[in-house]
Design a binder for these strands. Structure first.
Lengths: 327, 327
DNA sequence: GACTTGTCTGCACACGTGTGCATATAGCGC
DNA sequence: GCGCTATATGCACACGTGTGCAGACAAGTC
């Protein structure tokens, strides 16, 4: 702050009014004569004045800062979700403050950061955030909000894609195409996301009288998908429902290395619809999560303007199937 | 802030000292009797006290906030760079405040956000940020710092991978393997990054007495790479040096669809070393940018502790070649 | 006129913290 | 004793803004 910042009193002097009135001009609910407000705003614009967020937060005792706990950006879907989330939060007047958990999952640094900025709410969005992290947040008095995951004990509100319905779509897709030996590549064991999605897969198969011929534990990674290919071939499966696109890519590469042809020998369905799913090397049929819609509902939940969210513990937003060449 | 926050005076009362001393306990340079400071810190820890960042910024007139202008997260390399940048900034006591430019490249919203938080410095890191954005930042009195790009007019300091040297490595790799008909797939026309990298390619080829058989304009995207495949085959090139991994993937998919085999018919080298480059579908030989090193130098530059950076206008950090199966 | 209501503006206090200044003590040299 | 320095602590002011309160003015109702 080497160059002195313009403050409200400067604008007030320039316009010929009091600092209070300038302050009120920036508060939509306050009484200010319309033409005077207009004059203040144009002068503020000209002088490059913006109300000091620090002073504002201090005196009003209300922080615009919302904490976001993240694990990493390596999953393109997480990156997309994060980008849309921060974009819409800014548009709503909130200030996202992101804390990345290192490999050690040390959440203490994140919590003290949030406390410094007087954040009341914290967003957890990665599946990699485990129960311990959530407990730590709850214990420290923060209100926890979940995006794209939910709490099995329903302790906190959440907005989530309807993974069961999405799983249903994926299962429908392969069964309708006549596949009967369906394998499931699961997500991280014990995570709500993985369990809920798998439930959709099972229901979708059961609707056609099928059981999976194989279920493989995974962790949403490319490597997990690739490692599972051998077992899938061993089970003579003719379709694989994958927990996300990333492990679907691994599965495809693994199967192709084993000499199988997709989708002739075996069909693959992913989950998320990351940009790479559209690449011709994969051209993956996958379940698209409604990122924009999820985030807009979520921001309403943060602001407390979504009465449906206040009633329901978990808001579900439907998915849709994107049909490409692998199933 | 529904639950009242603990403040310094609460800690002071609990310990039996003055609020000033508590404040000084949190300032490493101030005189506080060691045992008393210890006592204060443990009590603060117990009560969950953290100094209010807003009050601190207000009174000290120094904002820890540094603006970051971003375009999007769709490029995995940008996501990685951003993740490392924010991690290290937090560790250095800075608070990154990210503003995403929308499709319209409207920078006014970002600037007013930065002003609200009294940011003095702003980081530009995406090649998608054009000259207009930089001019707007400079005109608004912000100090601009560039990461992984530089200003051709050297108006602002920058930390950048040594793209010329990296390009040199890539060119060396294919020429030493006996390739003589080398094509270049460029990055976004006119961007410093693209020009500098291309210079390395050309120098590396010239060192072996070669000129490129073809240069194709690109924009760092998968689609651009794929679209360029036909022209590459038409030129009967036996190697392609690509501006980044993303367009290298597109190039590979395009060439394979045309029936060419990699690397038997044609060698491919990428740039960035994103995680997908290691996937077996691509197994891309590429130039690895030293993300951690770049960021640590960059954070030193922000803090003003890197005297070499103060001297040199542009800090270059060397790249290295990651040898896989495509070249 | 008297009273109410709505609109508009200024004064003055408060938010939680950093820090200059004054003061106190201890140690050391003379 | 005095003087100097280093260490340690408290007092009190200041940062820029939101907002309660009081007051002013206009318009309307009785």
């Amino acid at each position: 702050m080497v160059a002195r910042m313009v403050k409200a009193s400067d604008v007030a002097r320039a316009v010929g009014t009091s600092r209070s009135t300038v302050s009120r001009a920036f508060n939509p609910d306050a009484y200010v004569k319309p033409e005077l407000r207009m004059q203040i705003m144009t002068e503020a614009e000209r002088m490059g004045y913006q109300p000091n967020a620090f002073a504002r937060a201090l005196i009003s005792r209300r922080s615009p800062v919302v904490g976001i706990v993240l694990h990493d950006f390596s999953n393109p879907f997480h990156a997309e979700l994060y980008g849309e989330l921060t974009r819409q939060m800014h548009a709503a007047g909130l200030t996202p403050l992101t804390a990345q958990l290192g490999h050690d999952r040390n959440v203490a640094d994140a919590l003290s950061l949030f406390r410094k900025y007087q954040a009341e709410k914290v967003v957890l969005t990665s599946f990699a955030i485990n129960e311990d992290v959530m407990d730590a947040c709850l214990n420290s008095g923060l209100e926890v909000l979940l995006l794209n995951r939910a709490d099995s004990e329903q302790r906190t509100p959440a907005v989530c894609a309807d993974l069961t319905q999405g799983g249903h779509l994926a299962a429908e897709r392969v069964t309708r195409a006549g596949r009967s030996r369906v394998a499931i590549l699961d997500g991280l064991a014990g995570s709500w996301t993985a369990d809920t999605r798998a439930q959709g897969y099972l229901q979708g198969l059961a609707a056609h009288g099928l059981d999976p011929v194989l279920r493989i534990a995974g962790d949403y990674s490319y490597d997990a998908g690739k490692a599972a290919a051998e077992a899938v071939r061993g089970a003579r499966a003719d379709a694989v429902l994958c927990a996300n696109d990333l492990c679907a890519f691994g599965m495809m590469d693994g199967l192709r290395e084993l000499g199988l042809s997709i989708p002739d020998d075996i069909a693959i369905v992913g989950f998320d619809d990351v940009p790479m799913a559209a690449w011709s090397a994969y051209s993956l049929t996958t379940v698209r999560l409604p990122v924009m819609k999820m985030v807009s509902r979520f921001v309403e939940m943060i602001l407390g303007t979504d009465e449906e969210a206040a009633a329901a513990e978990v808001v579900l937003v439907p998915c849709r199937l994107v049909e490409r060449d692998t199933a």
